[in-house]
Nucleic acid binder design. Sequence first.
DNA 1: AGCCAGGGTAGGG
DNA 2: CCCTACCATGGC
Length: 306
Amino acid sequence: MWGRRDMNDLLFELPLPEFFDLPACLEYMNRSPLECLFRSDGEGVTRLFMLEGTPSLVRLTVAAGTPRLQATLLTGAFPGPKPLAELAQYIVEWFDLERDLAPFYRLADADPLLQKLAASERGLRIIGIPDLFEALCWAILGQQVNLAFAYRLKQQLTAEYGKSLEYEGHTYYHFPGPETFLQVSMEELCSLQLTRSKARTLLDVAALIAGGELSREELLALPSPEAAEQRLLKIRGIGLWTSQYVRMRCLRDATAFPVGDVGLQNAVKFLTGMDRKPTPAELLALSVPWHGWEAYATFYLWRALY
DNA sequence: AGCCAGGGTAGGG
DNA sequence: CCCTACCATGGC
């Protein structure tokens, strides 16, 4: 029975924490029709994983009336215990399931800027990018371009270098690993509309990770998130925004606060009625009551823009 | 045409 | 530490 295709095998269930709302998460994940690394609808999300070298399509839903997140295998071979455990861990980090959000809502519910969002987005968690290379690439692609174009760049990069799988009329893509880029030239990447700066930084990051000189585990093992930030800042083309973004989306650091982020600035401008964008100093002053939850405040504020 | 976009670097105080 | 050019590409 295991291993048969298109059998919708239940892989595992994860107990849901308090304050988790899958539809709220899916709404965020649905913010761009150009997203190519997963496909979400009102019921759940489907993503292509490589399990023991086999492209495997996994769908996540919440079983009706239960506090459990179900992972279902749509196609692929039923994996062994180790890849199964790694997949479960990936999903825990993808949806930040181990975070206790009660302290965040205690402060957000009393905060003039966050109050409404904390109510309307109740149960939204920071959707992570657990893979360091993918997270860095997404941040690099998103530097100084509008989101629509960043998605287009990611789509072109993924379609060119990643694996894909057709299922029920949709194409699912898997983001290429860093080793894929060891033989790729800047010119090749520039032909996909990356600037030379983005291409060079992406290739440098790929070489570092593929060469074992940079890893998520190493960054998490450093004594503090600030130390991880310093490590990332050593890489040319990675500045403050990118390192804070990676802390927030990949290293699951709830205190990361990308004050240079235009989206954050525009959200605060909109919510406060300012006639200009707030300066980083003004954002830092605003964030004092959010201490410890700056990343969650940022993620919720982004929602005000949609 | 001109300004903006989920920035970064180099150069000069 | 700060501030200022300048870079580079697409969207509207």
